[in-house]
Amino acid sequence: MEAVYRSETERNVSFAKTSRWKRRMPYVVAFSILFITTLPVILMYVWLLLNSFSSQMKHGFIPVGFTLDNWRFLWTNVEIASSVYPSIWLATWNSLVFAGVLTILEVIIGVMAGFALSRLRFPGRQGLLKITLILHAFPSIALLIAVFYILNFLGLFDTLWGVVLVKTALQIPLTAWIMKGFFDDVPWDVEWAGLIDGCNRFKVWYTIVLPLVKPGIAAVSIFSFLSGWSEFLLLYTFIISDSNITLATYLQKLLSDPNVVPYGLLTAVSVFYMLPVIAFFILTQKSLMQIHAGGGKGV
């Protein structure tokens, strides 16, 4: 009898273990795939970090010797043979100005345009919504010649403000569409209640509706800043002078220098370029986790 009871207990324990493994198996497979796919990216960033503090890399991936010489661009201008590079702090400031102004303009215009597309009914609204997405689908490189003539005519060629306006115009269609989705999720009853209480349309929009779409504003702000910080094509094409150089074009100068640029210096500048983005992500990750896609009703 005791042997039968022990055998039954062992079978129950074995069944429980099997069931537990079956429940965990999807998670094990998912995390395994995620680890395998992200491992090359993680190793790439680790290599950048190690190389930036190493005097050389044995066999291409084993760091040898610790040095801060690769980071000399932080306290002095880099000189390689006959090439003298601008201050990294000037490039950093220009990058911050470019990304910051782009974010402000894109959020202001995108929020107002999204609200108008969501709430106002006017002739041609359906066509405008479709054209909005089509405009965003145009690649920037297809518009370079036309944009050059426009900026040159306006006297904005080789200025950060000119490129900011171009980048804002290219980003606004998608921003307005995203914000429209968030405004669609706000019930009309909320606005009617404010109007009945004596608020005008602007006060209802500013004090009642905007607080309800804060996740959408956070999403647009974050992605606008990251888009501006990582922008290269427009800045490389329409910025010539070193006084308007950004970190993206600074890296390009290093890569295209006819002299041999040390990999250690190049990796150090690359790590420096990533640091503000990492800090920005850490500060905004709580808002990122609260972002949803927004509604699409009322189209």
Rank of each mutant, 00 (worst) to 15 (best):
D242P: 14
L226A: 02
L226F: 10
L210A: 05
Y236F: 14
L212K: 08
Y273T: 07
L234P: 08
P215Q: 10
L210H: 02
G216Y: 06
I217Q: 04
D257A: 13
T237N: 07
F225H: 05
S243T: 12
F202R: 09
I282T: 00
Y273C: 02
T246C: 10
L275C: 09
F238H: 05
V260Y: 14
K253H: 10
Q252N: 15
I245Q: 10
K203D: 07
G264S: 08
I278N: 06
Y263V: 07
L265M: 15
T246A: 12
G264I: 06
L212I: 00
P211K: 03
A219N: 10
S243F: 01
A219P: 04
W205Q: 11
F280M: 04
I239M: 09
L235G: 09
T246M: 13
V260G: 08
L275G: 08
D257H: 08
V277C: 07
L233V: 11
P276T: 07
A248P: 11
N244G: 13
A248Q: 15
F202W: 15
K203A: 08
S230M: 10
V271C: 14
F238E: 11
Y273A: 02
A268R: 06
L212Y: 02
V209T: 15
F238R: 00
I208R: 07
A218D: 02
R201T: 13
S221R: 01
F238I: 00
A219M: 12
W205H: 08
V220I: 10
V277G: 05
A268E: 03
L251P: 02
T207C: 10
L226C: 02
K253I: 07
L235N: 11
L235K: 11
D257V: 02
L255C: 05
N200S: 06
F272S: 03
A279I: 13
L283Y: 08
P211V: 04
F232E: 12
L254I: 06
S243C: 01
Y250E: 07
A279Q: 06
S243H: 09
L254P: 13
L265C: 11
I245L: 09
F225R: 00
G228I: 01
S243Q: 14
L233F: 11
I240W: 14
L234W: 10
V261F: 01
E231H: 02
P211C: 04
A218S: 08
L255E: 15
S224C: 06
S227V: 00
M274N: 11
W205Y: 15
L212V: 02
V204F: 03
T284R: 00
V213A: 03
Y206E: 11
S241K: 07
P276Y: 13
I239R: 06
F281P: 00
T267G: 03
Y206F: 09
I239N: 11
F281M: 08
I240E: 09
S256I: 09
Y273R: 06
I217R: 06
V204K: 05
R201V: 13
I208Q: 12
I208F: 09
P258H: 13
Y273P: 00
A218N: 05
K253P: 10
Y236P: 01
E231S: 04
N259S: 15
P258E: 15
S270K: 09
A218T: 01
L275M: 14
G216W: 04
V271G: 09
Y263F: 12
T267K: 12
V220D: 00
T207D: 15
I278A: 12
F202H: 05
W229K: 07
